[in-house]
Design a protein around this nucleic acid. Structure first.
Lengths: 200, 200, 200, 200
DNA sequence: TATGAATGAGGGTTCATTCAT
DNA sequence: CATGAATGAACCCTCATTCAT
């Protein structure tokens, strides 16, 4: 990679970092492109050399952060000796929830913005700009040979939507209950959802 | 109610209607207070006599629209002869999904903005400005004597979050599948969630 | 006229004056709306309460200034005892040329921007915002009973286009000759054009 | 011409072509130097190696296009057997008008920007970058021995200004009449202008 | 109560120009 | 000669909010 290309990559990443910080601190609506550029130490016009607008950078960030959450959970999973795939999924879910619980700003950002569409594009593009093998993690779970799932994509979809929407309220506002009290019910529900999709 | 009070109530409702129309037509970010006032035939300053800002009127609308969805579903339920409470819940869920499927703008508006907090305040305030006995409907379901539920609030919370978040993607983008294909899985999951909360 | 309405009229005129000054001094491209507002002592946003954009105010100004030129020439004509309509037209042309020669900035502004479309809309709208009876002057020339003109509109069109385009170069750059040397040829040409349209 | 020089000439012409295309498609104000460079397949900085700015390239283009119009008309004239010089001028005028009528974008571009100054510099520089002997054509018309003209430059000036300004409105907007209806009056006026300059 | 003119900060975006490579 | 990343001033326009009427 040439010096110029390296420089460009650094600028891009600096902008992404700045945007993330500001989105989390002030929210997207109250973050201006001028803020992002200033925070990143570049001129306002430079922003437009790398991103189309605020929502472009937001989508990239969401995908990126979601990938990181999964990758981190998967890395932790590898250190455990959990053989049952259903329990692996629960483990990953739990790990992600704990991560989000530790970093409520991240939760606020991801949950408010994550949609299935972005999640899937994140899956597909996970190899472009970072080395997270997000897609591999996903595939590994789906295509193992312990269970045979019917419509595994729908299953994953429902699990992710259930977890992300319930955690949002529970972690941020303790509504209707705090997260640790919610977890047992939540994981039972996840197990129930999985069971519906398992072929005997 | 005096003539003046009546006039004020009409203005308030006219503003709510205008705001709703514009929110679903153009989105909240692209709706200005000037738009709402103009659409409602009052002066800009008048808006501030009734509402604090755009987000104030939004929250009131979400609660209002959510109430309507439940009331409509409950009214339909009364015409059916469904005795089992679990099936009553499924019926209501299905009815609301169908309503949202018919009115995608409403879905876009409600799902993007509905949070458990707003939902609960909507429950509590349902008697203030309209005659929907939303709170009664809710209570009727929870406190019947057919089943005994553990943590019924958590149960309802999880059902609502699961349905609203999955429907959003499915109805609007057919992702990961169209709503009719999703429904069987979704209702099975709802049943599973309920079952976890039923005391034998 | 209420106090508010009077205030509004004054603001509008103040903006028109400021815009004209700046257009003449710096050109339209180099005049910003911020400049106009500032020069006029109002806030930037106020501009948009009165005009759509820079080009809106420009068109209004051109029509306005063109009207003034004609009105001034007509007023001078009334003090002369010129009975022949053709010589009346020449007198008006000459008067306008002299005015433009005295105020080269005005020439720069009007000639660069005057088009037949604007001229005609100026004719029609001349009664809206000022008391110049531009339309009456025009009609008086066309519909007298001394001569009968064929296609008088085409005649006027050609005269105006010929004069405005040749004066531009001659007055501003003395190209191909200075205006006083051009005038005899120009007026002869105008007479020739008129003669083509006179029915014997 | 060396290979390098040839390459440079090609770049220059490519930039001119691109600029012309964009000027007539989007107008000068809405054409950026970045657009021109991109359209021409060179880097932005390269533009500045050949031209000073947008207005530099515009002036060159106007002169160039005006030359082409005259050259094309003159070429057509050579195929006709028109001996009378006045009718030759009318023929050229008519030919140019027809060309502009066929290519309204060209008219828009030339008429909005052509000034006598540019026209003359175009005359003088016509030999620099292309092989159009524009100057020769001009001289041929002026210095024939059929008629003797007084102030022939003024005559040509007035003819050109009259035609270009009236055609603009007539061809583009059919105002005050369409071009074919205007032509008889216009050519009569041209003849009248010429006659004023002919020495008996 | 109701109005709507006025504000002016602030947002997004463009672009001519430079300069290190 | 050629490049194109970077600049940052400048621009247009919106809009929540105020306040005199």
């Amino acid at each position: 990679m040439s010096k110029v290309e390296l420089n460009k990559k650094q600028k891009r990443e600096s902008l992404l970092d700045s945007a993330f910080d500001l989105f989390i601190k002030n929210g997207i609506n109250k973050t201006s492109i001028a803020d992002i550029a200033k925070n990143s130490g570049v001129a306002k016009g430079t922003f437009y050399l790398y991103f189309k607008d605020k929502y472009d950078i937001r989508n990239i960030l969401i995908a990126h952060k979601a990938s990181q959450l999964f990758a981190s959970a998967d890395a932790a999973l590898q250190k455990e000796k959990i053989t049952d795939v259903i329990e692996q999924i629960i483990f990953i879910a739990n790990h992600i929830i704990d991560d989000l619980n530790k970093d409520k700003s991240l939760l606020l950002f991801v949950a408010k913005n994550l949609s299935w569409g972005i999640f899937k594009s994140s899956l597909i593009n996970s190899k472009n700009y970072d080395d997270l093998d997000f897609y591999d993690i996903y595939n590994k779970l789906i295509n193992q040979d312990q269970y045979k799932f019917i419509d595994p994509e729908i299953m994953i979809f429902m699990i992710i939507e259930l977890i992300s929407s319930t955690c949002y309220s529970s972690i941020l506002y303790n509504e209707p209950v705090e997260i640790e009290k919610l977890k047992p019910y939540l994981f039972n529900s996840v197990r129930a959802i999985i069971n519906e999709h398992v072929v005997a």
